[in-house]
Simulated scan of single mutants.
Amino acid sequence: MEGGALSSLETPALVVDLDKVKRNVQTMKERCEGGGVRLRPHMKTHKTLECADIMTGGSRRCIVVSTLAEACFYGDHGYDDILYAYPLPFDKVERCATLSERLDLFQVLLDHPEALERLRRRPLAGGRLWHVWLKLDCGNGRAGVLHSDAGAVQLAQAIAGAEGVELTGVYAHCGNTYYCKGVEQIQAVAQETTDLTLQFMEKLKAVGITCKSSIGSTPSCSHPVKDMSRLSEVHPGNYVFYDMQQSLIGSCSLEDVAVRVLTRVIGHCPHRNQLLIDCGWCGLSQDGSGKLPTGYAVIEGHPNLKLASMTQEHGRVEPLSGALDFGRYPLGALLQLIPYHACATAMMHPVYHVHSGGRLLGQWRPTRGW
């Protein structure tokens, strides 16, 4: 398979353009270095060792994960300084403790006093400290304690004052950038989130608390505002692959999107003016329904085709207008789908086929689970 053409793959298949991945990573690295802020890349999009090594420059340090499965996977492969950026699940405290006792720096995130109490009830061995980030809601529609709530500062004080616990930082995610259109709107959200986070840091300073600050999302970090340099870290993740959603938002150009799903024509349906392909929602996900004029994905090189609907293992493709020329799409013909949301699409595949210039280089296998 190595050295072969993409057409040699069985479909549906997720293919990753290594050259674009490396370019996206380098661009984000240079952007953060130029802005004077530390980059803590998020692993949730790809969940692979190989891509993580590219994103960290081989250091295997300073990453964010969204599941404990990812944290364990990376910890088992020599990674450290791992932030589990998910509100502390009470059923996973013991697993978090094991990682905290095994790694030099494993960090958890919480947004409720009860979560802090759960940590206090489970002191770490050897006098180790729980390293905790406070999740802050800056009006971004995700988890977190509201920035304007007096209880937010009180919770930070409780974390900082708890025995066996250290307040490592304040973490905000500007997920509402995903509703933006264009750089101006993205930067407005990035500015607001940055301002509110920095204002909260001043509130903490007023009560004698100093710690790190971090905000992130791929759109905001793709078009950062100047004041983000006053933060300690940023934590984008999707930038490594990008996707149609990021392209529509304005985070990237279509040329930056590094992933495709290969699919083949398996049926002609003249009575419906449709092609049948071997990629349904199990190979693409249904994320993005109604968001693209071309249906659930963009069919590269065929702007008049629309992925109109999917079942579990099949997709129905039809023209945006006119009659379908079935002669252009014989049975077995290969099509490339540009996914709407790379994170969701990647989750549908147990293996990624990596290529450069259309020649296969090998495979990446993501970790799975929670």
Rank of each mutant, 00 (worst) to 15 (best):
E2C: 12
E2K: 15
G3P: 11
L6G: 04
L6D: 08
S7E: 15
S8P: 07
E10N: 02
P12W: 10
K20V: 15
K22C: 12
R23G: 14
E30S: 13
R31S: 10
C32A: 13
E33N: 08
G35R: 09
V37M: 02
H42D: 13
M43F: 08
M43K: 10
T48K: 01
T48F: 01
E50F: 00
M55N: 03
G58A: 03
R61Q: 15
I63E: 06
V64P: 03
V64T: 13
V65G: 11
S66N: 15
L68T: 04
E70Q: 14
A71G: 06
F73S: 05
G75M: 02
G75I: 07
H77M: 02
I82C: 07
L83E: 01
P87C: 11
P87H: 06
F90H: 14
D91T: 12
R95D: 07
R102A: 11
R102L: 02
D104R: 11
Q107S: 15
V108Y: 03
L109N: 12
L109I: 04
D111C: 14
E114L: 13
R121G: 09
P123D: 10
L124R: 12
A125S: 15
A125R: 15
A125Y: 06
G126Q: 09
G127S: 11
R128Y: 05
L129F: 13
L134S: 00
L136N: 01
C138A: 13
A143N: 11
G144S: 09
L155F: 09
L155H: 03
I159S: 01
A160P: 05
G161S: 13
A162W: 09
T168L: 08
T168E: 08
Y171D: 15
Y171M: 14
H173A: 10
T177Q: 05
C180P: 01
E184R: 15
A190W: 07
E192M: 13
E192D: 13
T194A: 07
D195S: 08
D195R: 15
T197N: 03
F200W: 06
A206L: 12
V207Q: 03
I209D: 06
K212P: 04
S213F: 12
S213G: 07
S220I: 04
S220W: 02
S220H: 02
P224K: 00
K226Y: 06
M228Q: 12
R230H: 13
P236K: 02
G237W: 09
S247Y: 08
L248Q: 14
S251H: 00
V261E: 06
L262A: 09
L262W: 13
T263D: 00
R264F: 01
I266G: 00
N273H: 07
C279K: 03
C279Q: 07
G280S: 04
C282G: 00
G283R: 00
G288M: 08
G288E: 10
S289R: 14
G290I: 09
V298K: 05
V298S: 04
G301H: 10
H302D: 10
P303I: 04
L307S: 01
E313D: 11
R316A: 04
R316K: 02
E318T: 14
L320Q: 14
S321G: 09
F326G: 03
P330W: 02
P330R: 05
G332A: 06
L335W: 12
I338R: 10
P339T: 14
Y340V: 11
A344D: 13
A346R: 02
M348I: 12
P350V: 10
Y352D: 10
V354Y: 10
G357C: 05
G358C: 05
R359D: 09
R359M: 08
L361I: 05
W364K: 04
T367S: 13
T367C: 15
